[in-house]
């Protein structure tokens, strides 16, 4: 059955490395952050001990925060100035047709509709995930930097109420990001029975022609022309 599969390069090396740095730093930030949020549970206490006590936990969290910030800065340059990055970001922009496919897409998920709405390089769920990460990182970095004023000994430049609100937002947003990443992204690319144990595209950068056709038909059309689609149907 298995033949020499034709494939298309979906993500280049830089993007794959960016993704690895992103998820490593996010996972470490979530572990070190949530262990403080849930400091009063046995798991939280245990994690804080492993992370080297409260101070060690803080330093670890700050280290990965700066890795994430550096990545975000690099990524901003990447999408602005590199050809590939610029192209990717225009693919990730929300279009009117995305929202038109929202209801049919939900119907398809619920099994009310058998036709899967076609999508381009990124489907609407993937677009939401990308912009969700962007928004989440923005909120976490801004609030995180305010909280860091304390560590730098210049906490007096902001009033206490801002500091308190920042703390509440930072910890709650952290929980939200954890839920979204694990129930949405990790489920979609790892745990869903369709692709378990994982979708290897993050490692190889390659997507098979067959998968491209079924998951991203509009992109497939752009590359191979329309006749293949009609052939398949």
């Amino acid at each position: 059955m298995k033949t020499q599969e034709e494939y298309v390069i979906r993500f280049n090396l830089s993007e794959r490395i960016q993704h690895v740095i992103l998820f490593v730093s996010l996972i470490m930030l979530l572990i070190t952050g949530l262990s403080l949020t849930y400091y009063d549970s046995w798991l939280g206490r245990m994690m804080i001990e492993i992370e080297g006590g409260l101070q060690g936990r803080g330093r670890l969290h700050n280290l990965f925060a700066f890795i994430l910030i550096a990545l975000c800065v690099y990524h901003a340059f990447y999408i602005t100035f590199s050809d590939k990055g610029h192209k990717e970001i225009s693919h990730l922009k929300f279009r009117k047709k995305d929202f038109k496919k929202l209801i049919p897409g939900l119907k398809f998920s619920m099994g009310l509709n058998t036709n899967k709405p076609s999508s381009g390089r990124y489907n609407i769920s993937q677009k939401f995930q990308y912009w969700g990460v962007v928004l989440g990182c923005a909120v976490m970095i801004v609030t995180g930097l305010i909280l860091l004023l304390k560590v730098w000994g210049i906490a007096m430049i902001v009033p206490k109420w801002l500091w308190d609100i920042t703390g509440v937002v930072h910890s709650n947003e952290g929980i939200l990001i954890f839920i979204v990443l694990f129930l949405w992204h990790i489920y979609d690319v790892h745990l869903s029975p369709k692709i378990f144990p994982m979708n290897k595209v993050w490692l190889t950068g390659k997507i098979s022609k067959q998968e491209l056709q079924s998951e991203h038909p509009e992109e497939y059309e752009e590359i191979y022309g329309k006749e293949f689609v009609s052939d398949k149907q």
Binding site: G153, I154, A155, V158, P159, K160, L162, D164
Partner: peptide, 11 residues
């Protein structure tokens, strides 16, 4: 470094 900003909020 405590200044009046420290008092602007609830404890």
């Amino acid at each position: 470094d405590a200044n009046v900003n420290y008092t602007k909020g609830l404890i």
